[in-house]
Structure formats: C-alpha cells, structure tokens
Amino acid sequence: YVERLTAELAEAGWEFFRTIERDGGQAAVLRSGRLRTDLATTWAERSKKLAKRREPITGVSEFPLLAEKPVEREPAPKAPSGGLPRVRRDEAFEELRARSDAHLAATGARPRIFLATLGSAAEYTARASFAANLFQAGGIEPVTEGTFEDSGATEAVLCSSDATYAERAEETAAALRAAGARQVFLAGRGEYAGVDRHVFAGCDAVDVLSATLDRMGVS
C-alpha cells in the first residue's frame, strides 16, 4: 500500500506541474493569481475535513493529552514575507487550546464539562470516550466522577446507548438543568427534550468547541 500511495502522490504532483506548464509556466501562473486561488480552494476543502476530524491529527484533534507539558524550544525564525500563503493543519485546534491554556494560567484550572454516563459501562463507554476525546481537543477537561454539582462544570454531555437514551435522556437532561447546567449535549443522535446540541462522528468539532469556550467565558 505504501508503494501505491507513493505512486499516486507522484502522479498527482506531476500532473499539477504539467498544468502549470500548460498555463505558461511558474512565473505566469504566479502573476495571474491562479496558483494562489487553487491553493486557497484546496485549503478551504481540507479545512472542513480537519474541522470535522475526517482528517484526524493525532495528539491534536484526536487523542490529545491536556496534561502534556509544552515543548520548550527556541522561537522559530520569522517567515520571509511574500510568496504563497503558509498554513498549518492544526492551526484551528491550536487556537482553541491556546484559549484553554490562557484560562488555566489565569484561573488555575481548565474549563470543564461533565460527562453524564447512563447505564452500564458497556452502554456508555464508547460514547463517553468519544465525548472526552472531542472536548479535550479544544482544551476542555472532561469530568466523569461524582455529580454535576461537584464537577466545577457549567455544561454536560449525555453518554450512553440509543436504547438508554430513549428511556432516560429527557429526565436526565431535566435533572442536569435543575442542577445548573447551562447547556446539555448528547453524544449521538436523536431528538430529546432538554438536549441543546448533539456531538457525533463527523460533526464540526471546531465549531462545537469554539462555541462552548465562548459560552464558558474562555476568551
């Protein structure tokens, strides 16, 4: 499979260079703005995949470690001006984590969200793991132990199976509201009274996390 991917990459790159040649060469393509437009279009499409974690970034959008110590190193040299735009795959998630880091430095704690697990471990583990992974990508610490009142969180996520949701989602959402939850998520799909928003594989993680930090007052 490695040889096949390598061949596909080489063929796609060569075809890209051939389109530049057909349009008059590198200088002409740069002057016309066509190359910049093509790159911007590709980046816009890729950004959507990154935001929805369709293109996962290990350690950033998937399997982040909030307790990880930041790498200490010399600042990178200033990038030269001009030329084509410079982008980073993880920049949207970096901005979210930077907001959380600043909140931690200012208050001594990260923003938190309570995972309300319903039923047996077999019923809730998969979705609780998904929710914890998702919110940690934005620097939001998931809390699973104790009660909502003791968690220090202002929002909560219901985590369980569809069958358990049908039986308990609405009453649990109401109880969380009564306990002070400002927003109640549900990991999965299905409409239930008291649930504000759903999180699921393929949802826009950047939008969810940014809006959540906004509500929590994390600037």
Score class of each variant (00 low, 15 high):
59 G>I: 05
175 A>F: 07
127 R>I: 02
69 K>L: 06
78 K>Y: 04
41 T>C: 12
118 L>S: 03
194 G>H: 13
57 I>A: 02
3 E>M: 00
160 S>R: 10
1 Y>V: 02
184 V>S: 05
100 S>Q: 11
62 E>Q: 12
151 S>N: 05
211 A>W: 07
96 L>H: 02
41 T>D: 15
178 A>K: 15
9 L>T: 11
64 P>A: 13
184 V>M: 07
201 A>L: 11
8 E>D: 14
48 K>T: 14
87 V>A: 03
132 A>G: 10
144 T>Y: 03
39 L>G: 11
123 E>N: 13
204 D>K: 07
80 P>R: 11
18 R>H: 13
170 E>L: 02
54 R>P: 01
206 V>C: 04
144 T>H: 03
145 E>Y: 09
128 A>P: 01
114 F>Y: 15
167 E>T: 12
55 E>R: 08
80 P>G: 09
24 G>F: 08
4 R>Y: 05
50 L>Y: 10
115 L>T: 01
27 A>W: 04
8 E>L: 04
9 L>H: 09
63 F>K: 07
52 K>N: 11
75 P>C: 12
90 D>A: 15
156 A>H: 06
138 G>C: 04
68 E>A: 14
42 T>K: 14
11 E>G: 01
103 H>I: 01
201 A>C: 08
141 E>H: 02
121 A>R: 12
142 P>K: 13
16 F>S: 13
203 C>K: 07
9 L>D: 14
35 L>N: 14
144 T>P: 00
147 T>M: 08
185 F>P: 00
78 K>H: 08
98 A>M: 13
79 A>L: 14
23 D>L: 13
158 L>C: 04
217 G>A: 12
106 A>F: 05
156 A>N: 03
17 F>S: 11
51 A>C: 03
176 L>M: 11
126 A>Y: 00
33 G>Y: 09
179 A>G: 06
127 R>H: 02
42 T>E: 13
2 V>M: 06
1 Y>F: 07
109 A>L: 07
40 A>N: 08
14 W>L: 15
104 L>S: 04
129 S>M: 08
210 S>H: 08
208 V>I: 15
181 A>V: 00
44 A>K: 12
94 E>K: 14
176 L>Y: 14
79 A>I: 05
68 E>H: 04
197 R>W: 09
88 R>N: 09
205 A>L: 06
91 E>S: 11
132 A>D: 04
3 E>G: 00
65 L>E: 08
92 A>G: 01
215 R>V: 01
131 A>N: 01
17 F>W: 10
167 E>Y: 07
93 F>G: 01
156 A>E: 04
86 R>G: 05
82 G>H: 05
167 E>D: 09
92 A>T: 06
70 P>A: 09
36 R>F: 05
84 L>R: 08
163 A>P: 00
28 A>Y: 09
188 G>Q: 06
59 G>T: 03
85 P>W: 02
132 A>R: 06
165 Y>C: 06
80 P>Q: 07
192 Y>E: 08
82 G>F: 02
176 L>T: 00
58 T>L: 10
22 R>P: 03
103 H>L: 10
76 A>G: 14
43 W>P: 01
56 P>K: 02
169 A>G: 03
193 A>W: 09
53 R>G: 01
129 S>Q: 10
78 K>A: 15
195 V>L: 11
30 L>A: 13
90 D>Q: 12
18 R>Q: 15
157 V>R: 01
161 S>F: 01
80 P>S: 07
